[in-house]
Simulated assay, not measured.
Amino acid sequence: MTTPKPTDPFRIASAVWQDLCDYQPGAAAALTIQLKNMPEDWPLRVFNVGRPDAAVALPPAAVGEVFDDMRPEIPPYAEHSFDECPACIEADDNCRYHKGYAEGHHEALQAELDAVKADPTITLKDFLQRQADADEHPAA
């Protein structure tokens, strides 16, 4: 199991805040009201530490949900390209969404490569037509 790289809590907070404002403005407003109503000793009450800077330095509690080597990323996954995805940037690799997308895309392309290896004269159009025909009329 690899240890995830340390994260910048201020960058993550900024990204989460921006996502809340963009996708859940009501939740962003409610969070602001809730934060304004917190008592001054919130670090002790919430995180059991005495100072805000100590709370900021706390490590992530979750280290991967399904994947032992990946912590949970910033959503939404599908709204961004590979290069601009905040979860990919945070992980410094493809996030879980983009890893799955890449694997699915690879499997689809692998079928095309196998067809070309079996018959080098086949064109992509021929391959796709054969696939469509096979989907419409499956062998009994």
Results as ranks from 00 to 15, higher is better:
E40G: 14
F10D: 14
G64K: 02
R130Y: 06
Q24L: 03
Q129T: 15
A111H: 03
P52D: 04
R51Q: 07
E79F: 09
A115W: 11
P138C: 05
V116Q: 05
P75I: 06
A108M: 12
A132F: 05
R11F: 11
A87N: 08
A115K: 04
V49N: 07
Q34K: 11
R96W: 00
T2W: 04
D135N: 15
T123Q: 09
E112I: 15
P43H: 07
D53T: 12
K5V: 13
A61F: 11
G50M: 13
A111D: 00
V63G: 05
Q18A: 14
E103S: 11
A134D: 13
C21K: 14
A139P: 00
D135T: 15
V16P: 05
I89A: 13
Y23I: 05
N37L: 13
P75G: 06
T123C: 05
L35M: 10
L35I: 07
F67E: 03
C95W: 07
M1L: 03
P6F: 08
D119F: 06
M1F: 03
E40F: 01
R96Q: 07
I74W: 02
T123P: 03
C88A: 02
P6G: 08
F82V: 15
D69L: 02
R51C: 00
H80Q: 11
E65C: 06
P9L: 08
D8S: 12
E79Y: 12
D114C: 01
P43I: 03
G26H: 01
Y97E: 03
D41F: 01
L113A: 15
S81W: 13
